[in-house]
Design a protein around this nucleic acid. Structure first.
Length: 211
DNA sequence: TCATTAACACGGG
DNA sequence: CCCGTGTTAATGA
């Protein structure tokens, strides 16, 4: 599909015309499949991703190499760490994996600064930074203050939002890896949630009820 | 008390 | 048979 059509169809409600035109000339359209790596720790950022459709999950890796999920990024948004890295010219401190098949618009990283004279771009960048900051705080709260029970429930609800579906194709083991705990714990908590009528368990699938 | 690890049984594909 | 799931027992933080 033509770039300018793509940009206009998806972002005309966000950005002014001049910016949309510039975007069309430099953006690259990319499709990623579920579970595809977008970014790994230490990798240099060369672009910022604008998400047209789908969702991306973002992980932090600790010193032992264990991953913790931070948040999901959904359509019409971008990743805060890209904004950070652009300014510092640094390398990625996070890991990003496609949660679902997704369509992205890749913007060369230096454009982030070049476009700051556009009012709509400033709003978008700062707004997105704000969103990511809130979600980061939630992630900190989740790790520091919530018990595993609440963390699992938050994880499931965030995942429902990211996937736009109450039917989550996932195994207990995968959840335990993303939350960095053991499968025994996840199985027990999920069973309890099922008894409390919050979810229904199936093989390779969890249905979230009353969302 | 609650998480982890290992171990085992059950069942569906 | 292999894998996901449910559960228990032992151990530790």
């Amino acid at each position: 599909m033509d770039n300018s059509v793509l940009v206009n169809e998806n972002f005309s409600f966000l950005f002014e015309k001049d910016l949309l035109n510039e975007m069309a000339t430099v953006a690259r359209y990319k499709i990623v499949k579920k579970d595809e790596f977008l970014m790994d720790i230490g990798q240099e950022m060369t672009f910022m991703p604008l998400i047209i459709s789908g969702a991306i999950k973002v992980f932090r890796t600790d010193n032992d190499g264990d991953d913790y999920i931070l948040y999901f990024i959904e359509g019409g948004d971008t990743c805060a760490m890209t904004l950070n890295c652009c300014i510092k010219g640094a390398k990625s401190e996070i890991k990003a994996i496609a949660e679902t098949d997704s369509e992205l618009l890749l913007i060369p990283i230096h454009k982030l600064e070049d476009w700051l004279h556009f009012k709509s771009w400033r709003s978008f960048v700062f707004g997105s930074y704000n969103n990511r900051f809130s979600e980061m705080l939630e992630a900190v709260d989740s790790l520091a203050f919530m018990n595993m029970n609440a963390r699992v429930l938050k994880y499931l609800k965030d995942k429902v939002l990211a996937n736009k579906s109450e039917f989550l194709e996932i195994t207990h083991n995968t959840i335990s890896l993303e939350l960095n705990t053991s499968r025994v714990v996840i199985s027990r908590i999920l069973k309890k949630l099922e008894i409390d009528n919050q979810i229904k368990l199936h093989r390779n699938q969890i249905e979230v009820i009353n969302f």
